[in-house]
Amino acid sequence: MNIHALRLFYYVAETGSVTKAAARLNISQPAVTSQIKKFEKDLGLPLFNPSGRGVSLTPFGIELAKQAGNFFTYEEQIDEFVEDYRHGRKGKLRIAATYLPANFLVPGWAAKFKACHPEIEMEITTTNSQQAFEQLKRHEADVAFYGGGAQDKPEDVDWLELFEDELWFVVSPSHPYAGRTVSLPEMMLEPFIMREEGSSTRARLVSLCVTYGLQPPQVTLQFSGLGEAIRSVMAGYGANFISSLAVREYVEHKRLARVRVEGIQLSNHIAICTRSHESVPAALQQFIDICRSFPPEL
């Protein structure tokens, strides 16, 4: 069906006048009349009754005008839907985040974003760095938030670094090393409580040991989350190598104690990762802008 001709017919039926429809569409009256006659011929059905004055629709014309009205109303709704997506007013954001940003950064940013974008649906998945990048590559996530070493950056992602935070060795306040400075070999003799393999921080600890020719520490307790590992160290057992962002408050309130290690000063890179060579949708760009505008207090 010729949609342009259907639109001309609909405006004639709605206004009750070829002249008014032509003015509304900014085309000549003869052009409207000619195209509608061709439209009737293509349909094989009359749309208008012969009439000396005005416009008189046939029964078929009346029903077609109703259907056309529904069609063009739905077309307008689709246009609005597209515009809402284009300008970031509606849609869905799928976020994959490693444990550090997922627990300490993304919730606050998401709350600020939702306050301004109530119709944007947000789905946040907490995972390790390897799986976060895999979800991004497989288009299962629109963006990945990463906290770890810059050397882990995949080649096929765009990397926007937000800030760095220090990596600390922490123990219980009752531990003999609490508040002290020790050597790296001494620290590596302690039992460690860490997250599962695939965690970027655990990989950084192993890499540190390799760099200094040391045997990696024994991981005597392993958890899939940061909170469980932190609470176990608080309870008085072992040590942890962890982002200062995750434990700063506990150290300040003396529920954990920092151990300084001679010659070692490492930091986490907190970054937003998107797929290379792809444009960033408006809603995602607005979320990224919020993340950049509200850095945490370190």
Rank of each mutant, 00 (worst) to 15 (best):
H117N: 15
H269G: 01
Y10N: 12
G236P: 06
G179C: 07
E161D: 12
Y11M: 14
S232I: 00
M188A: 03
A239I: 03
P101Q: 13
F81V: 00
Y74L: 14
F9N: 06
T126M: 09
A178Y: 10
D158L: 09
Q218A: 13
C273N: 10
V55A: 08
E14M: 12
L93D: 06
Y237E: 14
E76W: 05
G198D: 09
A110C: 03
T58G: 10
S172M: 11
N49S: 08
E121A: 15
T58H: 06
R7M: 10
Y11I: 01
S224H: 04
K37S: 15
N49A: 10
F163S: 00
A282R: 08
Y177F: 15
R255H: 11
K254D: 15
A102F: 09
M234H: 05
I193D: 07
L245T: 08
Q285N: 13
G225T: 15
F9L: 10
P296S: 04
T201Y: 02
Y85I: 14
A239H: 01
Q151Y: 14
A141L: 07
K153V: 04
H253N: 13
I95A: 10
A150V: 13
R292W: 00
F71H: 13
Y10M: 09
H175F: 06
G236F: 10
A68Q: 06
D165G: 01
G88M: 08
A111W: 00
H175R: 08
E140C: 03
F9E: 04
G44Q: 04
E63D: 15
L93A: 07
G236T: 06
N70A: 12
G16V: 06
R7V: 04
I290N: 02
L245D: 03
V210Q: 15
R292C: 11
P154L: 03
Y250Q: 12
L245K: 03
Q135N: 13
E155H: 09
Y10Q: 12
V261K: 09
L57W: 07
Q67R: 13
S200K: 01
L45Y: 06
S51G: 14
D158R: 09
P295S: 05
M187G: 05
N70P: 00
D79H: 09
I36Q: 07
A111C: 01
N2H: 06
E121R: 14
L6G: 09
D152G: 00
H4I: 14
S51Y: 00
L45R: 15
I264N: 11
T58L: 11
Y85M: 14
R260A: 13
Q151H: 13
V32I: 12
C116Y: 01
L45D: 05
L105Y: 07
S183D: 12
P176V: 01
V12C: 09
P281I: 08
I3M: 10
I288T: 04
A282T: 05
A239S: 11
H253Q: 15
H175M: 07
F169L: 14
I272W: 03
E196F: 01
T127C: 10
T73W: 02
A144R: 10
I272F: 01
R7G: 04
T220K: 09
R275A: 06
K112Q: 06
L25T: 11
Q35C: 01
D84A: 15
A102M: 03
G263K: 11
I95T: 08
G52F: 08
A132Y: 03
Q285Y: 00
T98R: 06
V182N: 03
